[in-house]
Design a binder for these strands. Structure first.
Lengths: 177, 177
DNA sequence: CGTGGAGTTGAATACGATCAACACCGGTGG
DNA sequence: CCACCGGTGTTGATCGTATTCAACTCCACG
């Protein structure tokens, strides 16, 4: 194997249908998922029962809860499918075997993490400084193939606003455009 | 050299005084800083001139803008000292030389990135789901040595609320405690 | 001393949340 | 094939939390 991606490619395809839950909080068999087709999401459910979406994962994305990193009691995030999907899953222990001694794979992985941190940095800064409207515009620009594909209420959850508010934001944008 | 940290330790110490700016947005000589003493911060300034703090870096922390990763035109974050500090700086090109072929160093770096992503994940989820009060409590618990050390207005900026709001939050907490 | 930044407090405002009603499909079963 | 149903999105009215603007106190520092 000479690349990080190939590790995933080798795995068998698993079919998951819309609404199917792949990871539940507290569960300790944390896995990573490479999405071949469809779309997954990761999210938390707060004390009031409200979901907050951390990440979407359409085709060619990798999604996981990062708890396996911390050796904690179990996952904090939930992961489920928001469309009928095909994924390749990597169990925790297999994930570790990626971290072998091949510097080129390790460097590729570092590159992936750097990109991930950079993306999260932007997300944090936008949550700190953007209004609901600015967040939505930024989301559309950053993920042009995603915003019309996932339900509005999930985009709202990702952006940290209510569906009602986002609906109004969108209405305003249509007027001024 | 047999560890990531040693690379920093070898660098000469640079004295920076409170208020000194180490990195400005647009500047393309991006560096990383290891804080020996004192405290740095990274932040953006929005269109209204308001600061939003991305990160604090007290003793033994590493801070950088991650733009060097993306090979963009320059930094987006600013970095300055909020106390008189001592730092060791690693210029961008030297940073790359860390990414050599020693698997143990690379794996240590991956571990650092995993922790970073995990921390950012929590930050995002808290910004999505916590009230101002919950964020402040979480901040105090997570950084017990920091919240009484940095000015309230900077904590407020980090948490995404105004200094006035945080002042009121703190007042309420004192009453109910 | 005096000066300016930091923090507090008050009053008015604004933005988004909440609650509620309704329209609009898309899928399911009779 | 159509009627029904549940989920999604929209819209309106009201509410609440945090922001804004302003005044004042308190120190730290020159």
């Amino acid at each position: 194997m000479n690349s990080f991606e190939e590790f995933f490619k080798e795995q068998p395809i698993r079919q998951v249908s819309k609404g199917e839950v792949l990871v539940r909080p507290g569960q300790n068999s944390s896995e990573s998922f490479y999405v071949v087709k469809g779309c997954l999401r990761s999210y938390i459910t707060d004390v009031k029962g409200k979901d907050h979406i951390y990440q979407f994962a359409p085709e060619d994305w990798i999604i996981s809860d990062l708890e396996f990193v911390k050796n904690k009691s179990g996952a904090t995030l939930s992961i489920d499918a928001i469309e009928d999907s095909e994924v390749k899953e990597i169990p925790r222990d297999k994930m570790y075997s990626i971290l072998d001694n091949d510097p080129s794979i390790l460097q590729a992985l570092i590159q992936k993490f750097q990109n991930r941190v950079y993306t999260l940095q932007n997300r944090v800064l936008q949550l700190l400084s953007y209004t609901a409207e600015e967040r939505y515009i930024s989301f559309m620009n950053t993920y042009p193939n995603l915003y019309h594909r996932v339900p509005l209420k999930m985009v709202a959850s990702y952006l940290g606003v209510t569906p009602e508010s986002l609906s109004r934001v969108r209405k305003e944008l249509l007027k001024t455009k």
